[in-house]
């Protein structure tokens, strides 16, 4: 069974990638991420608190970059220039690792991607040697363009970031999958385990989620549910589902009935 997910120069066993935002504390973050089985973990970059005390914990003290593949994002960037700058800083922070989640947003309410700025940033980053996993709208033409220009993975949204609405346009995702030569990873909008399973059953190569786990009542249990949903959805995709039919089809023999 094809269980290896290849993204650029990286290979992963797990098809679930998780964020580190919105958890109660770093202990909970680490517990949930450990249980999820994810190997790729996203982080954001922000100004350091000045005047912090010496023992103040840092996220990367809990999520060790030797254990997990850290995927820094460009969340909060609304233009290509800021996103490129953030990626360059993250490369310096992570000892030259140039594996990034590009995310350029168009507006603050729905957090939809700003696609022209996303494409501009992707081009600059690819030329600069970055492996770019790109958050984007679920538009098949934009996804194709990002694929063609050399992004390492294309990550269309299922629905708006943090909305938990699930895949609102599975037909678009199917079209994107048909045309892709790179991994397609649904990023954002997954709300619960069935959403993750549906994405994987459609044939997506992976899923990136944060809020669905972090804002569950029991994040650690939800992390386990998501791990199993991604595995189940993947297996169902590989197994090939039965065709849907509009009428019933008996499962038991219709002959030799006892009369």
């Amino acid at each position: 069974m094809d269980n290896i997910l290849k993204i650029g120069t990286h290979s992963f066993q797990s098809r679930l990638m998780v964020g580190t935002g919105k958890y109660k504390d770093f202990e909970e973050t680490k517990s949930a991420i450990s249980v999820s089985g994810a190997e790729v973990v996203t982080v954001a970059l922000r100004r350091t608190n000045m005047g912090q005390n010496k023992d103040e914990p840092n996220l990367l003290d809990f999520i060790d970059p030797k254990t997990w593949t850290i995927l820094p994002n460009t969340a909060g960037c609304f233009n290509a220039e800021d996103a490129v700058r953030t990626c360059q800083l993250s490369r310096e922070l992570l000892d030259g690792k140039a594996f990034v989640k590009l995310e350029v947003l168009g507006e603050k309410k729905n957090l939809f991607p700003h696609m022209s700025q996303t494409i501009e940033a992707a081009r600059i980053l690819i030329d600069d040697g970055f492996e770019v996993l790109v958050y984007c709208s679920d538009d098949p033409i934009f996804c194709q363009e990002l694929d063609d220009m050399g992004c390492a993975a294309v990550m269309p949204l299922a629905s708006p970031i943090g909305s938990g609405l699930g895949i609102i346009n599975p037909y678009n995702i199917e079209i994107i999958l048909e045309n892709s030569s790179k991994p397609i990873i649904v990023d954002a909008g997954v709300g619960t385990a069935s959403d993750a399973a549906i994405a994987m059953e459609l044939g997506c190569d992976g899923i990136l989620m944060n809020t669905a786990i972090a804002h569950a009542k029991n994040p650690v249990l939800m992390a386990e549910a998501m791990k199993e949903a991604v595995l189940s959805g993947r297996k169902a995709f590989l197994a090939g589902r039965m065709p849907k039919r509009e009428t019933a089809s008996p499962s038991s023999p219709t002959t030799n009935l006892i009369e």
């Binding site: 964020g19 954001a44 350091t48 994002n73």
Partner: peptide, 10 residues
Amino acid sequence: IEIVEAVGGG
């Protein structure tokens, strides 16, 4: 001068 670090994010 900007000094940045990794924080939780999705």
